[in-house]
Amino acid sequence: MKALTQLARYTLMIFVALIALIPILWMVFGSFRSHQEIFEYATSLNIHLIIPVEWTLQNYVDVIMDERNPIFQFIGNTLFIAVTVTVLVLFFNSMAAFAFAKLNFPFKNVLFICLMSAMIIPGEVTLVPNYLLMNDLGWVDDYKALIFPSLVNVFGIFLLRQFFEEIPKDMMEAARIDGASWFRIYWSIVLPLAVPALITLGIITFLANWDSYFWPLIVLNDDSKQMIQVALANFSSLAGTEWAKILAANTISTLPILIGFLFVQKYYIQGISTSGMK
């Protein structure tokens, strides 16, 4: 009976894994195919649906050697922005989340509703006013326009507050009595306990910036400064979509993230189970 439930469990797990994996397998294997092959076999059940008939590295050569679209430069630009934003987001938003979770201060509820509102308003409608603001600040075509407006992460404040609330208040009060400053309590008691949450938020913020397309498209004019997703969009034109190159370029830009995640998730899972919140 037990063996049977185990079997059922693993079958389910593998089934879900297949559903999760098929598109990425199609992408990675597809990147080793010629354009002409990609959709030839895309519509029937056979082995070549996923596995290339004729393997080729040409797509990678095309994408990497393309002088007009230096993919590694775009990846570098994006990496710079994503890391900068992630570090700053973690710092400022965890501070705010700490205050919301553990401190009483005037206008707390008002501010919280304001934050909620900022999360609810569709970005499409603030795009033009935001662009005007960037224009007035002289930040058009400047990385500041990508960094500063991304620093408020309402979702992050929500998530972290959630975690911080679990931390017993008496622990902090004891520290207060021992003369610790609020900043020290935040820095050396609360943050270490919330490492898993910080990593979750870090991953999400990083991914969001890695995927950001619309805002960089609007505020950056100099193509050498552009972000990776905007560069990828340039593989489509009126004439058609260069699928083979898109798949290769996407594989190049996704694999490092996946490997990074594999690495971080180990730490992340450990973090959860050893954080030992009481």
Binding site: F98, F105, Y186
Partner: peptide, 11 residues
């Protein structure tokens, strides 16, 4: 109170 304000000020 002061700390609370200081912590949320940047955001």
């Amino acid at each position: 109170k002061l700390a609370g304000i200081a912590f949320v000020l940047p955001i």
